[in-house]
Design a protein around this nucleic acid. Structure first.
Length: 464
DNA sequence: CATTGTGTTGAA
DNA sequence: TCAACACAATGG
């Protein structure tokens, strides 16, 4: 909550991190060093790459030119700050495919004499020449056309079989359950279900995101480092727009910092950004539309508040509106003046607010009650009132692009204030409620004063 | 070899 | 807390 010092657009962060997914947590480094030791379990390629480097072996693989998506997997992050217990080769993984053989020869193309150079026993997987990392390749030109998922772009997983699985998933998405996969299709039931809701590009993008690599640092999260003096976590993103490092703030938890990085990454790199958390956590659209002065970031600290930016108060507002408190205001939402008082709006009646929150709907939830809390700037948590959303049921109403929600605001006085807000909401109350992780809105609706709404969220981390 | 992530250090 | 430089890993 003390991370109230981030760039304005970061304001859009909403850490629903509570359910820190299983996020293959360990994007850490693997401690095997294939380059120097023939030690553990030599791999096929170790034998193949005799002499100097193995590089050229794949150079000829021009087929890869058509790759639209690729995932890299590594097994040789050289250093090792974090030695991860590598037991990733769980029994499960070893269920290596019976179709290996076929995988090998079915890739066609390559002439027989190059077979021996295959760098992985898995279909769709190749081992990167220098690095020893693994890439899963999926060829699809349409993808490329749409400018999505081109080759490379992210580090790799640490294990060959992971690359193989990535390939499998992509292939399943593209060619259906009958396609040849490395592992049994039954391994992917869950994923297959998930992919149904995504376009190929989306799915592939998500796969890419899940690939690992990186993190040679203190944090397992990308873009996060621990600061020397107070052990706080600093988030940065390098040389974006401008060519300077962009400092994203310091946070007390890695996750918050990681999220800050993610948002920045999305902001600058869009859908292709490689993020720490699943992209679904963020509302890319909103992040993109925030008025971040791309190319120049408010180098100047968002001094107290850049009310200036706010001027253009179209629905999407940003501008960090810090408040004397130490609460984290994620987004400040200057909005339409309250109702022209048509009726009795004086003190506490009815106000129409317009604001947007870059929160992505949680597709897994079908609840229609969102925990929107309205606060009074002065009293904060005391004046909590829950907003009940009505008139909407189910997922259809949670489309990110969609915008208007009608809500009733039940204030403490029992008064109900109709509330209209173009927002996208996360409706997953179950996970939030248990952690007190709520999206909240704070308002300044005093007498005549123009309401000033800020959105912030209650502390998530550090509170058990 | 161009990018971009991370260690570090230091001033404010 | 914020910034910057230097270096290293990544991916082309």
């Amino acid at each position: 909550m003390d991370s109230n010092t981030s760039p304005s657009w970061l304001a859009f962060s909403l850490s629903n991190i509570t359910n820190l997914p299983l996020f293959d947590a360990i994007r850490a480094v693997d401690h095997h060093d294939h380059q120097t030791n023939g030690g553990d379990l030599p791999k096929l390629e170790d034998f193949l790459s005799v002499g100097s480097a193995a590089p050229s072996l794949f150079e000829a693989d021009s087929d890869l030119k058509t790759l639209a998506a690729s995932f890299m997997y590594s097994s040789s992050m050289p250093t090792t700050a974090l030695t991860v217990t590598t037991n990733e080769l769980s029994p499960l993984d070893i269920t290596a495919p019976a179709n290996i053989a076929m995988a090998v020869d079915s890739s066609g193309k390559k002439s027989v004499d190059t077979f021996g150079q295959r760098t992985s026993i898995y279909r769709g997987v190749t081992r990167h020449r220098w690095t020893g990392r693994y890439e899963a390749h999926l060829w699809d030109n349409s993808c490329r056309r749409e400018g999505q998922s081109r080759k490379g772009r992210q580090g790799g997983y640490d294990k060959e079989d992971k690359a193989a699985r990535a390939y499998d998933l992509a292939a399943l998405k593209y060619w259906g359950p009958t396609t040849t996969t490395n592992f049994s299709v039954s391994d992917y039931e869950k994923e297959i279900e998930e992919m149904k809701h995504m376009s190929r590009q989306e799915f592939v993008a998500s796969l890419r995101r899940k690939s690992s690599g990186f993190s040679r640092g203190a944090s397992i999260y990308r873009g996060v480092t621990r600061h020397h003096q107070h052990g706080r976590w600093q988030a940065r993103i390098g040389r974006v727009a401008g060519n300077k490092d962009l400092y994203l703030g310091t946070f007390s938890t890695e996750e918050e910092a990681a999220e800050a990085y993610d948002i920045a990454a999305i902001k600058f790199r869009g859908l292709n950004a490689v993020t720490n958390f699943d992209m679904s956590r963020y509302d890319v659209k909103s992040i993109a539309s925030s008025n971040l002065p791309i190319g120049g970031i408010n180098k100047s600290k968002p001094s107290s508040n850049d009310k200036s930016n706010i001027s253009t108060l179209d629905h999407h507002n940003k501008a960090l509106n810090r408040n004397q408190s130490d609460e984290l205001y994620l987004s400040s939402i200057p909005f339409q003046t309250p109702q022209p008082s048509s009726s009795s709006s004086s003190s506490s009646s009815s106000t129409t607010l317009n604001f947007a929150l870059p929160i992505k709907p949680d597709p897994s939830s079908d609840t229609t009650t969102t925990n929107w809390y309205l606060f009074n700037n002065d009293t904060k948590i005391n004046n909590v009132a829950t907003l009940f959303q009505y008139g909407h049921n189910g997922l259809a109403n949670f489309q990110p692009s969609l915008s208007h929600f009608n809500m009733d605001y039940n204030n403490n006085n029992g008064t109900t204030i109709p509330f209209v807000a173009p927002i996208t909401v996360s409706g997953n109350s179950y996970e939030r409620s248990s952690y007190g992780n709520w999206v909240s809105a704070s308002t300044h609706s005093h007498q005549s004063a123009k309401p000033n709404i800020s959105v912030f969220q209650t502390p998530i981390f550090g509170m058990e």
